[in-house]
Design a protein around this nucleic acid. Structure first.
Lengths: 258, 258
DNA sequence: CGGTCTTCGTTCGCTATCGGACCGACACCA
DNA sequence: TGGTGTCGGTCCGATAGCGAACGAAGACCG
């Protein structure tokens, strides 16, 4: 069995682990594709694997039994799915759907739990991510209550842009975004036009190119930023600011867990 | 120093600890008042204490530098503030404000961390609560995006009612609620009138009596229920249902949706 | 008891967004 | 190259909620 080289890992949680911690996890990690639109976790389902995203985007979704759903958070190479297992919960209360295809290192929750039990520093690092996701979701609640569609679109595009190589366009349809934001499809169309008129984005069928991040940030009226700042504070690096993509840096994770 | 009797504790996290775990924490717990409108935690501030709520209600709030704010979650005797420390984070990204005065057992984070280090089972229990709060916040994001003011009011009143002695009225002004929900004050007035006309509540100046929980749950259109169900699943007990001999009865909220 | 402050009720015009529908444009496949 | 399905642009009337203002009723205090 070939060994995964830590230096080749894009996932920021794995890449930043101490070398011996990574080696302890490595035998259980398996690189798997993230199939577009697949459901990694479904509400009330058992969580038997955890995914460390390498490329692509996964949405954390509040899904109701009657089919209504909305995005609560978004995870890319900076994080993992599902954080519930870090809190000792193995049955899901939220969905996780792949919104942009890619790859991830997958591990069985049993294996992860066993290794974390031996190596507290792994748990420490992953818990920091759970905290950033919690903050992100709280800010989604804020944005959903106070921001216009256009502002929320700007926020979403920035967050998606943070998670793809910086020059790549974001791939998604208006229909899809309308579901994530909980608004009408044609509301998204109008909002996108406004962003395009502003020179912030350039849109074509199923594709959005971010032209001017600075402008998008202004438009988002503060709904973008704080969770990303929190992430950088806890993990260091340039997440959310990278001018040219995956500038994943590592920082020690020795903050006292206990 | 007199010893606190665990059987007299109302906080569900502390009350449910194994006896020896509780005894290990007990020397560091101090019963303190929760002063109405005090800010237990403020964004970017250091978190130096944790509160295990006995009575009263604490709101978890997304606060922006420009003063805009909104409630992301709500914590009463079933939980603690701030859960960030469970993830090893000691600088706040969210506010915690006392919305309904009461009391709490307070502990210094250093002491809590030290004891948890010795007793993993304490950490395990508290982490379960962190998970329920995360789910609650995700559902706030859902409600904020998809529900009307009236529906969100119903949700808020139910959640507040869960956290006060069952027959007590909820004490708060329209002004206050408008800030928590991020809507106009007069929007709350109109919403309250609708709920009162429905016979779900009876309102007087600064006070709301819940008359018919069942009706409120219907009105909330699913925005109330799932996080409470999750809490019961993880902790057992009757949280969110009528507790100890209240006149109010209700069925499991999830049944209205399955 | 009267003054003062807080809270609530109500109104106005205005805007964002809804729900639904229709159609044209593009993309892909045979 | 034409057919077919997806996607985006646009329009309609309807509505929830906004921002601001004003006044009345309850609560508190000297």
């Amino acid at each position: 069995m070939s060994v995964i080289n830590q230096s080749a890992i894009r996932n920021n949680l794995l890449a930043g682990l101490a070398a011996d911690d990574f080696l302890a996890l490595e035998p259980y990690l398996k690189l798997v594709p993230l199939e577009l639109r697949s459901h990694l976790v479904v509400t009330e389902g058992v969580i038997d694997h955890v995914w460390f995203v390498e490329t692509g985007i996964v949405s954390v979704i509040t899904a109701m039994p009657d089919g209504r759903q909305i995005e609560a958070g978004i995870v890319g190479y900076e994080g993992m799915v599902d954080v519930a297992v870090l809190n000792g919960v193995y049955r899901a209360s939220l969905d996780a759907h792949v919104q942009s295809g890619g790859t991830a290192y997958r591990i069985a929750v049993n294996d992860l739990a066993r290794v974390m039990e031996q190596r507290l520093s792994i748990r420490v690092r992953l818990a920091l991510f759970a905290q950033t996701l919690y903050v992100q979701v709280a800010h989604t609640a804020f944005a959903n209550a106070t921001n216009t569609i256009e502002e929320r679109l700007a926020r979403w595009l920035l967050m998606a842009n943070d998670r793809v190589s910086a020059d790549a366009a974001v791939v998604m349809t208006h229909e899809f975004l309308s579901i994530m934001l909980g608004v009408r499809r044609s509301g998204v169309t109008v909002g996108m036009q406004a962003l395009a008129a502003d020179g912030a984005i350039r849109a074509s069928r199923g594709r959005v190119a971010i032209i001017n991040r600075e402008r998008l940030i202004q438009i988002s009226r503060g709904s973008y930023g704080p969770p990303e700042t929190e992430y950088r504070r806890l993990f260091g690096g340039s997440f959310g600011r990278s001018v040219n993509g995956s500038a994943v840096e590592r920082v020690d994770s020795s903050s006292s867990f206990a």
